[in-house]
Nucleic acid binder design. Structure first.
Length: 389
DNA sequence: TCTGGGGTCCTAGGACCC
DNA sequence: TCTGGGGTCCTAGGACCC
């Protein structure tokens, strides 16, 4: 058996690498993938990174850092299909694959060792297969726990492998800044630094109770395990609790801030229709409708309402969202973004609609399903609510 | 031209019930 | 007539991840 059965595989600059397969003429130039206007960088190739460009950077700043940067739009259909075939490659190694995004997955290779050799060799084979079959590079971390494998792949980038055996976990983790630990973001890092905990080793040496007093019970416990590399060693595979989504939402930043109720309510309709259609396609319904509003100064608030019964109907979701918006009673306050999310999703089949007294019928639900059929036949542009035409 | 869009999980207070 | 806990649901905010 092996003492490092987990692989974390992470595609290198995935969105950019996939885009560059179609544009090999650009490989030596700084390239980012992202939206235009008020967008951020989704991925930057390694040439662009030399200019200090990285993902999540506002596009405007990326252009300032490197005026000659080439900006490509993301092609989500291609990304999704490349991702699916890469994941299929992983499943040829082991059925125990936990995919955590389009470009990342954990593999438990315990059962593949006899067939394919030690994990380090499996990792190298996998990397060359991915490169040969899909034309992109990836990096792999190999360890006994999920978070150590993940940190390993980050350290191996780009285009490398790093194995962290159990005996070396402490010496690998403890020099790292706490901000490198999975689950420690900007805020928690700042808080920990403020109380003198700068490295993972500092956290590891702090008594659990002190840690929990500083950052909360749960996070304290979590941090302690992360700093010792004793987080989970089993993957969540297949029909686990994460197999079905718990919420679905859509949000959009306006090209220009808007304080016009008509514009905002129309945008809420567009978002509600998008969410409801995805819910119907997934066969789920939800009871709680949440509205997100972001102001010009970037402060963001949410308001939610739980309905008497779960729905997947556009007008019901839109009605709830509009009601929440009106209850805010904003007077000509410019909004940067609005969003609609439906939470508490359950399988559609478990929802039993009770016809309320005097309620006409389920006309709107039937209308939605007719729209779904027409969209499947003629495309999304063919069928829209009249107010969006 | 400053800061996207899709999510998950945790905390905390109040309501309400037993 | 004095002051319980525990559990669940709802709401709002915040941190984090990719």
């Amino acid at each position: 058996m092996t003492d490092t059965p987990l692989l974390h595989v992470d595609m290198d600059a995935f969105y950019a690498s996939v885009a560059l397969r179609e544009r090999p003429d650009l490989v030596d130039q700084p390239v980012v993938v992202g939206g235009s206007g008020r967008g951020v960088v989704l991925a930057a190739n390694y040439v662009a990174r030399r200019y200090g460009i990285h993902s999540a950077l506002p596009m405007a700043r990326a252009r300032r850092l490197c005026p000659q940067v080439v900006v490509l739009a993301p092609d989500f259909d291609t990304l999704t299909s490349v991702s699916a075939s890469v994941m299929a490659t992983f499943r040829e190694v082991t059925p125990l694959v936990e995919s955590i995004s389009l470009d990342e997955a954990f593999l438990d290779v315990r059962g593949a060792v006899r067939r394919l050799g030690p994990p380090a060799r499996i990792a190298e084979q996998l990397r060359s297969t991915v490169h040969d079959e899909h034309g992109i590079t990836c990096s792999v971390g190999v360890a006994a726990s999920v978070s150590v494998a993940k940190l390993g792949s980050r350290r191996a980038k780009p285009d490398g492998v790093l194995v962290v055996p159990p005996a070396e976990v402490a010496s690998f983790l403890h020099p790292l800044d706490v901000g490198e630990l999975y689950g420690v973001g900007e805020k928690t890092r700042a808080l920990l630094h403020r109380i003198g905990l700068v490295t993972a080793g500092d956290v590891a040496r702090t008594p659990l109770e002190d840690l929990q007093r500083a950052v909360g019970r749960h996070l304290g416990h979590e941090l302690h395990h992360l700093a010792w590399g004793t987080d989970r060693g089993e993957l969540h595979v297949g029909a686990g609790p994460r197999a079905v989504e718990k919420s679905m939402g859509a949000q959009e930043t306006f090209a220009r801030d808007s304080d016009d109720r008509d514009v905002i309510v129309r945008e809420l309709l567009r978002l509600s229709a998008r969410v409801a259609a995805r819910m119907r396609a997934a066969g789920v319904a939800g009871r709680t409708v949440a509205l997100t509003v972001r102001f010009a100064d970037f402060t963001t608030i949410t308001r939610s309402r739980t309905l008497a019964e779960a729905t997947d109907v556009t007008v019901e979701i839109h009605g709830a969202a509009t009601g929440l918006y009106d209850r805010l009673a904003l007077r000509r306050t410019p909004l940067r973004l609005v969003g609609v999310r439906v939470e508490g999703l359950v399988p559609r089949a478990t929802v039993h609609h009770q016809l309320a007294l005097g309620e006409p019928d389920r006309g709107w639900a039937e209308a939605d399903r007719a729209v779904d059929r027409a969209t499947r036949r003629f495309g999304a542009a063919a069928v829209r609510p009249a107010s969006l035409v």
